[in-house]
Amino acid sequence: MPSPLISLRNVEKSYPLAGGRAWVLRRIDLDIQPGEFVTLMGPSGAGKSTLLSILGMLDVDWTGEYLLDGQAVHAMKPKARGELSRRTIGFVFQQYHLLDNLTVAENLEVPLSYRDLKRGEREALVGDMLDRFQLVGKKDLFPSQLSGGQQQLVGIARALIANPKVLLADEPTGNLHSQQAKQIMEVFQGLNRDGTTIIQVTHSEANAAYGHRVIQLADGWLQGA
Protein backbone atom coordinates (compact mmCIF):
# COMPACT_ATOMS: atom_id res chain seq x y z
CA MET A 1 0.00 0.00 0.00
CA PRO A 2 1.40 3.39 -0.96
CA SER A 3 1.92 5.80 1.91
CA PRO A 4 -0.71 8.55 2.03
CA LEU A 5 0.22 12.01 0.73
CA ILE A 6 -1.68 13.60 3.59
CA SER A 7 -2.23 12.11 6.97
CA LEU A 8 -4.00 13.82 9.91
CA ARG A 9 -4.14 12.34 13.41
CA ASN A 10 -6.24 13.77 16.17
CA VAL A 11 -6.15 17.30 14.74
CA GLU A 12 -8.11 19.79 16.81
CA LYS A 13 -8.68 23.52 16.74
CA SER A 14 -10.47 25.72 19.24
CA TYR A 15 -10.48 29.24 20.54
CA PRO A 16 -11.25 30.56 23.96
CA LEU A 17 -14.66 32.04 24.61
CA ALA A 18 -16.08 33.44 27.82
CA GLY A 19 -16.64 30.44 30.05
CA GLY A 20 -14.89 27.77 28.00
CA ARG A 21 -13.65 26.95 24.51
CA ALA A 22 -15.41 27.04 21.21
CA TRP A 23 -14.41 24.03 19.12
CA VAL A 24 -13.93 24.42 15.43
CA LEU A 25 -12.44 21.02 14.68
CA ARG A 26 -12.43 17.89 16.86
CA ARG A 27 -10.37 14.74 16.61
CA ILE A 28 -9.86 14.77 12.88
CA ASP A 29 -8.21 11.62 11.54
CA LEU A 30 -7.86 11.66 7.78
CA ASP A 31 -5.69 10.04 5.10
CA ILE A 32 -5.57 11.22 1.52
CA GLN A 33 -3.70 9.20 -1.10
CA PRO A 34 -1.71 10.68 -3.97
CA GLY A 35 -3.98 11.26 -6.99
CA GLU A 36 -7.22 11.44 -5.06
CA PHE A 37 -9.93 14.06 -5.73
CA VAL A 38 -11.58 14.64 -2.38
CA THR A 39 -14.59 16.85 -1.58
CA LEU A 40 -15.14 18.34 1.87
CA MET A 41 -18.83 19.01 2.50
CA GLY A 42 -21.02 20.05 5.37
CA PRO A 43 -23.22 22.90 6.56
CA SER A 44 -21.86 26.37 7.02
CA GLY A 45 -19.79 26.62 10.15
CA ALA A 46 -18.93 22.92 10.13
CA GLY A 47 -15.20 23.61 9.91
CA LYS A 48 -14.54 22.78 6.23
CA SER A 49 -12.66 25.95 5.41
CA THR A 50 -10.65 25.75 8.62
CA LEU A 51 -9.62 22.20 7.78
CA LEU A 52 -8.57 23.32 4.32
CA SER A 53 -6.53 26.17 5.81
CA ILE A 54 -4.76 23.72 8.10
CA LEU A 55 -4.02 21.39 5.19
CA GLY A 56 -2.63 24.38 3.27
CA MET A 57 -0.60 25.53 6.29
CA LEU A 58 -2.27 28.94 6.20
CA ASP A 59 -3.51 28.13 9.70
CA VAL A 60 -0.88 26.86 12.12
CA ASP A 61 -2.73 27.33 15.38
CA TRP A 62 -3.97 23.79 16.04
CA THR A 63 -3.00 20.62 17.88
CA GLY A 64 -2.43 17.06 16.65
CA GLU A 65 -0.26 15.51 13.96
CA TYR A 66 -0.08 16.30 10.28
CA LEU A 67 2.15 14.40 7.88
CA LEU A 68 2.45 15.91 4.41
CA ASP A 69 4.48 14.08 1.78
CA GLY A 70 6.15 12.15 4.59
CA GLN A 71 7.12 15.23 6.59
CA ALA A 72 5.82 16.09 10.05
CA VAL A 73 4.22 19.50 9.63
CA HIS A 74 3.32 19.77 13.32
CA ALA A 75 6.98 19.66 14.30
CA MET A 76 8.23 22.15 11.76
CA LYS A 77 9.60 25.62 12.21
CA PRO A 78 7.78 28.35 10.24
CA LYS A 79 10.58 28.65 7.73
CA ALA A 80 10.60 24.95 6.90
CA ARG A 81 6.81 24.98 6.75
CA GLY A 82 6.93 27.82 4.26
CA GLU A 83 9.43 25.89 2.19
CA LEU A 84 7.25 22.75 2.22
CA SER A 85 4.17 24.79 1.38
CA ARG A 86 5.86 26.41 -1.60
CA ARG A 87 6.86 23.00 -2.92
CA THR A 88 3.68 21.04 -2.40
CA ILE A 89 0.59 23.27 -2.12
CA GLY A 90 -1.44 25.23 -4.63
CA PHE A 91 -4.42 27.24 -3.42
CA VAL A 92 -7.58 28.28 -5.26
CA PHE A 93 -9.92 30.72 -3.52
CA GLN A 94 -13.60 31.50 -3.87
CA GLN A 95 -12.76 35.20 -4.27
CA TYR A 96 -9.88 34.39 -6.69
CA HIS A 97 -7.53 36.65 -4.70
CA LEU A 98 -5.64 37.89 -7.72
CA LEU A 99 -3.41 40.91 -7.19
CA ASP A 100 -5.27 43.81 -8.75
CA ASN A 101 -2.25 45.81 -9.83
CA LEU A 102 -0.53 42.96 -11.64
CA THR A 103 -1.34 41.67 -15.11
CA VAL A 104 -2.46 38.10 -15.72
CA ALA A 105 1.06 37.03 -16.64
CA GLU A 106 2.55 38.77 -13.61
CA ASN A 107 -0.02 37.19 -11.33
CA LEU A 108 1.07 33.80 -12.63
CA GLU A 109 4.68 34.70 -12.01
CA VAL A 110 4.21 35.66 -8.35
CA PRO A 111 4.65 32.15 -6.84
CA LEU A 112 7.68 31.55 -9.06
CA SER A 113 9.26 34.77 -7.89
CA TYR A 114 9.53 33.25 -4.44
CA ARG A 115 11.71 30.43 -5.72
CA ASP A 116 15.21 30.41 -7.07
CA LEU A 117 14.44 30.35 -10.75
CA LYS A 118 16.13 32.08 -13.62
CA ARG A 119 14.11 34.65 -15.46
CA GLY A 120 14.09 32.48 -18.59
CA GLU A 121 12.73 29.52 -16.69
CA ARG A 122 10.04 31.64 -15.11
CA GLU A 123 8.97 33.05 -18.44
CA ALA A 124 8.83 29.57 -19.95
CA LEU A 125 6.64 28.28 -17.12
CA VAL A 126 4.30 31.27 -17.34
CA GLY A 127 4.10 30.82 -21.11
CA ASP A 128 3.23 27.13 -20.74
CA MET A 129 0.52 27.92 -18.26
CA LEU A 130 -0.98 30.69 -20.42
CA ASP A 131 -1.09 28.21 -23.32
CA ARG A 132 -2.60 25.47 -21.27
CA PHE A 133 -5.45 27.65 -19.98
CA GLN A 134 -5.86 29.55 -23.25
CA LEU A 135 -5.07 32.81 -21.56
CA VAL A 136 -2.37 33.96 -24.01
CA GLY A 137 -4.63 36.64 -25.46
CA LYS A 138 -5.35 37.99 -22.00
CA LYS A 139 -1.89 37.90 -20.52
CA ASP A 140 -1.50 41.68 -20.36
CA LEU A 141 -4.95 42.40 -18.97
CA PHE A 142 -5.57 43.26 -15.34
CA PRO A 143 -7.94 41.11 -13.24
CA SER A 144 -10.64 43.76 -13.24
CA GLN A 145 -10.88 43.39 -17.02
CA LEU A 146 -11.82 39.71 -16.80
CA SER A 147 -15.08 37.92 -16.06
CA GLY A 148 -15.36 35.93 -12.85
CA GLY A 149 -14.82 32.64 -14.66
CA GLN A 150 -11.71 33.92 -16.38
CA GLN A 151 -10.35 35.28 -13.12
CA GLN A 152 -10.81 31.90 -11.49
CA LEU A 153 -9.05 30.27 -14.41
CA VAL A 154 -6.09 32.57 -13.76
CA GLY A 155 -6.36 31.68 -10.06
CA ILE A 156 -6.10 27.99 -10.92
CA ALA A 157 -3.26 28.54 -13.35
CA ARG A 158 -1.42 30.47 -10.66
CA ALA A 159 -2.00 27.67 -8.15
CA LEU A 160 -0.61 25.11 -10.60
CA ILE A 161 2.36 27.01 -11.95
CA ALA A 162 4.77 25.85 -9.28
CA ASN A 163 3.71 22.27 -10.02
CA PRO A 164 2.28 21.47 -6.58
CA LYS A 165 1.46 17.95 -5.38
CA VAL A 166 -1.88 19.06 -3.92
CA LEU A 167 -4.40 21.58 -5.15
CA LEU A 168 -6.62 23.00 -2.40
CA ALA A 169 -9.80 24.74 -3.56
CA ASP A 170 -12.16 26.61 -1.26
CA GLU A 171 -15.56 26.93 -2.96
CA PRO A 172 -13.84 27.61 -6.27
CA THR A 173 -17.16 28.10 -8.10
CA GLY A 174 -18.97 29.93 -5.30
CA ASN A 175 -19.00 33.23 -7.15
CA LEU A 176 -19.66 31.79 -10.59
CA HIS A 177 -22.61 31.07 -12.83
CA SER A 178 -23.47 27.43 -13.42
CA GLN A 179 -21.94 27.42 -16.90
CA GLN A 180 -18.63 28.87 -15.73
CA ALA A 181 -18.72 26.58 -12.71
CA LYS A 182 -19.02 23.55 -14.94
CA GLN A 183 -16.06 24.67 -16.99
CA ILE A 184 -13.92 25.14 -13.87
CA MET A 185 -14.89 21.71 -12.55
CA GLU A 186 -13.92 20.14 -15.85
CA VAL A 187 -10.54 21.79 -15.59
CA PHE A 188 -10.14 20.24 -12.13
CA GLN A 189 -11.14 16.86 -13.44
CA GLY A 190 -8.56 17.07 -16.19
CA LEU A 191 -5.84 18.11 -13.75
CA ASN A 192 -6.72 15.23 -11.47
CA ARG A 193 -6.52 12.78 -14.37
CA ASP A 194 -3.04 14.11 -15.06
CA GLY A 195 -2.05 13.23 -11.51
CA THR A 196 -2.71 16.29 -9.31
CA THR A 197 -4.23 15.52 -5.94
CA ILE A 198 -7.22 17.81 -5.36
CA ILE A 199 -9.11 18.67 -2.21
CA GLN A 200 -12.11 20.94 -2.64
CA VAL A 201 -14.64 22.48 -0.31
CA THR A 202 -18.09 22.95 -1.84
CA HIS A 203 -21.78 23.21 -1.09
CA SER A 204 -22.67 21.86 -4.49
CA GLU A 205 -23.59 18.21 -4.99
CA ALA A 206 -22.89 18.70 -8.68
CA ASN A 207 -19.33 19.79 -7.97
CA ALA A 208 -18.85 16.94 -5.51
CA ALA A 209 -19.77 14.52 -8.26
CA TYR A 210 -16.51 15.33 -10.06
CA GLY A 211 -14.50 13.92 -7.12
CA HIS A 212 -13.80 10.38 -5.94
CA ARG A 213 -14.83 10.71 -2.37
CA VAL A 214 -16.86 13.04 -0.15
CA ILE A 215 -15.85 13.76 3.40
CA GLN A 216 -18.66 15.17 5.52
CA LEU A 217 -18.01 17.55 8.39
CA ALA A 218 -20.56 18.77 10.93
CA ASP A 219 -19.88 20.98 13.92
CA GLY A 220 -16.19 20.21 13.65
CA TRP A 221 -16.51 16.40 13.57
CA LEU A 222 -15.82 14.07 10.67
CA GLN A 223 -19.06 12.23 9.88
CA GLY A 224 -19.15 8.51 9.37
CA ALA A 225 -15.41 8.18 9.59
Binding site: P43, S44, G45, A46, A218, D219, G220
Partner: peptide, 12 residues
Amino acid sequence: DEPTGNLDSKNG
Protein backbone atom coordinates in the same frame (compact mmCIF):
# COMPACT_ATOMS: atom_id res chain seq x y z
CA ASP B 1 -29.30 36.41 4.45
CA GLU B 2 -28.10 32.97 5.52
CA PRO B 3 -28.82 33.76 9.15
CA THR B 4 -27.34 30.47 10.32
CA GLY B 5 -24.44 30.41 7.88
CA ASN B 6 -21.76 31.33 10.39
CA LEU B 7 -23.19 29.27 13.25
CA ASP B 8 -22.79 25.69 14.38
CA SER B 9 -25.87 23.51 14.19
CA LYS B 10 -27.00 24.06 17.76
CA ASN B 11 -26.86 27.84 17.56
CA GLY B 12 -28.29 27.67 14.07
